[in-house]
Structure formats: C-alpha cells, structure tokens
Amino acid sequence: MSGALQVTPELLRGWRPRSLAEHGDKEARGRVLVLAAGAQVAGATLLTAVAALRAGAGKLQIGAPRSLSLGLAMAIPEARVIPAAETVGGELAPLAAAELADAFARCEAAVIGPGMLDVDAAGELVLRLLQTEGPALVVDAAAMQGVAQDPRRARRHAGEMVLTPHAGEMAALAGVEKADVAADPLGVARRTAARLQAVVVLKGPATLIVSPDGKAWRHPGGGVGLATSGSGDVLAGIIAGLIARGAAPVQAAVWGVSAHAEAGVRLSRRIGRVGYLARELLDEVAPALHQLEAGG
C-alpha cells in the first residue's frame, strides 16, 4: 500500500466541507455533545466545546459532572449543560451514560474524553454509549482505552468514529511499545484503524490521518507552539464541529488537523514561535477555516 498523501491547499480546495446556506439556521449546522473532563482539568471541557462552536456547529450541549455543571454553564453561556453522575474523583461516571442517552441520540457529533484522567470510568462510559446507535464520535484521551478493550463494539460504528491519540496513546491502543510507533507510525496507525474500523489521527510534529480502509494523509504540522496543554482538546472540538456541519468523519479529521495547524501558524506570527496558549487558538479557528476554505 502506498504512503500518505501530503495535505496541501490544492487537496483541501478539491475537498471542501459542505457549503452552508447563507440564510440557514443553527439546526442546519448540527448539534455537538461534549463529554469531557472532571474536576482536575475542567478547562478541557471549555476548550473542546468552544472549539466546536468556532468550527461552525450550530448547537452545543455538554454532559458535565454534577458538581461542575453550574460553573460550566456560567463559563459557556452558549451551551446547554446537562448535570450527570460523577465519580468520587469528580469525573463523569459510567452511570452518566443513561442520563445522557437522549442527548447522545439527538446530536450529530459527540466528543468523549478530552481531559479525562480516570481510564476505567472513561472507558466504561464510552463502552456503554457504544451499546446504542448514535452519532459520529470523536474519542480522545482516557476514553480511547474503552474502545481498545472492545473492538467488536467499536466496529459497530465503522467509519463513524475518530480517535485522536498522541504517540503514547497510540502505543496503548495498538498494544505495542512507543518505540514501535516511532519506528513505523503509518503502519501502526493503519493496522489500528483497520482493527477498530475508525479514523485514526496520530498527533505529532507531523500528523497522520488514516481511514479504516487504509487511505492516509500527512499534515506537516503548525509548529512547535501547538505542543502545549489543551491543544489536543481544541483539535477534538474542531473535528466534532465540522462533523456536525455535515462533513464525513475522515474529511472532518483532515480539515480539523489543517485548521488547527493554521491557527497555530497565525498565533506564531502574532505572538511567537512558542508561548501562546490553547485558549488563544480558539479565536483563530474560524479565521483559519475561512482562509482554508477560500483556498489560501
């Protein structure tokens, strides 16, 4: 099988997301549900959720640990925040799957995992949600281990799931050493995408996007400044927002990686090569998407 296609402006121009009607309403841009961090990294929820809106999603819902729900509702007034069961450590509990089932079934894209630290709770939560028919999923951080534990259930959502690991998480997903990922990142990503029937976004200085059928794209990256706390949460939100707007998961992954990188480039010009913050990426997402959609 051939190597990965380089993501270029020409490639993106020929593969634009669905155009939005000038007079369309928010329903036409879809609904995103964010199920993300608990007490220790609550900001990850904000980064993910706002990124989804910046990418163009029309409506936003957040499933939040009960003790955080009011604070998140005040911090993100654009969102409907649904209080749900939490663990002793303040993260979403597996029981929250039942409380969030209606919101999960009624959205176009769901993001699960950004900022989650409890691998057992996050993994069980995602497995319970995967028991039912639902939206396209973007799965990040601790929640990815639940997918890896039950490939059969993951394959029920063939082609409708995007996994966003860095190299260490990729190693855990694939059941190999991190050195094996470094030695053959494309091969490991392809095998994992095929086994789980998911789109794999292997994050790094250059990011690989691999579809379940083995097609692959390589984005050269947006600079070292993107390697900062919360940057991956923003990426997950962008991808979900694009899916809600009507992009196929693999298309949303390629465009999401590109917009995230372009946002980093824009900040590096304005602030510096390193030192900008993930929260500052949020204001660059819409301009970056507009620039890419315009072909430049």
Score class of each variant (00 low, 15 high):
Ala110Tyr: 06
Lys203Gly: 03
Pro114Glu: 07
Glu160Met: 10
Gly43Trp: 11
Ala28Ser: 15
Ala206Val: 00
Leu242Glu: 07
Ala244Asp: 14
Pro151Trp: 13
Gly38Ile: 10
Ala248Pro: 03
Ala240Met: 06
Gly24Glu: 15
Pro287Gly: 05
Ala261Trp: 10
Asp184Ile: 08
Leu292Thr: 03
Asp25Ala: 03
Gly230Cys: 02
Leu35Pro: 02
Thr8Gln: 11
Val176Trp: 01
Leu33Thr: 11
Pro212Cys: 06
Leu282Thr: 01
Gly222Met: 04
Ala96Thr: 03
Ser231Trp: 13
Arg191Thr: 11
Thr48Phe: 02
Val210Tyr: 04
Val224His: 01
Gly38Leu: 10
Gly3Cys: 11
Ile209Asn: 03
His166Glu: 11
Pro287Arg: 01
Gln197Tyr: 00
Arg80Ala: 12
Val188Lys: 07
Met161Pro: 00
Ile243His: 09
Thr164Ala: 10
Val119Met: 11
Ala52Arg: 02
Leu47Arg: 07
Gly168Gln: 13
Met116Asp: 07
Val254Met: 03
Leu47Glu: 02
Val181Asp: 11
Glu27Lys: 13
Gly232Asn: 12
Gln149Ala: 15
Pro135Phe: 07
Glu284Cys: 12
Ala98Leu: 13
Ala248Ile: 00
Gly204Thr: 14
Gly90Thr: 12
Met161Thr: 15
Leu173Glu: 14
Ala85Trp: 06
Ala182Gln: 14
Gly272Pro: 14
Leu267Asp: 11
Ala4Arg: 11
Pro83Glu: 06
Arg18Ile: 08
Ala73Asn: 08
Ala252Asp: 04
Gly56Ala: 07
Ala294Glu: 14
Ala141Trp: 05
Arg29Trp: 08
Arg269Ile: 01
Lys59Met: 15
Ala182Glu: 15
Val138His: 04
Gly24Phe: 03
Ala182Tyr: 09
Ala263Ser: 15
Ala142Cys: 09
Ala39Pro: 00
Gly256Met: 10
Ala294Phe: 00
Ala154Lys: 06
Val34Cys: 12
Leu186Ala: 12
Ala64Tyr: 09
Arg80Asp: 05
Ala141Cys: 03
Leu129Gln: 07
Val119Arg: 15
Arg191Trp: 06
Val41Lys: 12
Ala121Gly: 13
Ala73Ile: 01
Arg13His: 04
Pro220Ile: 08
Val201Pro: 01
Pro185Met: 09
His290Val: 02
Val285Phe: 06
Glu108Gln: 15
Gly246Gln: 05
Pro9Tyr: 12
Glu169Met: 03
Leu68Asn: 03
Asp140Val: 06
Asp283His: 13
Ser258Asp: 07
Gly175Asp: 12
Arg273Val: 14
Pro135Ile: 03
Val119Ser: 11
Val126Tyr: 12
Val126Glu: 14
Gln291Phe: 00
Ser2Val: 04
His219Tyr: 13
Val181Ser: 07
Cys107Pro: 00
Gln61Ile: 00
Gly38Lys: 09
Ala183Val: 08
Val257Cys: 01
Val50Gly: 00
Asp213Lys: 04
Asp180Glu: 15
Val50Trp: 09
Ser258Met: 06
Ala172Gly: 12
Ala172Lys: 14
Asp180Cys: 01
Glu280Met: 12
Ala171Trp: 08
Val147Trp: 06
Val188Arg: 14
Lys59Asn: 04
Gln145Thr: 13
Ala198Gly: 01
Pro151Gln: 09
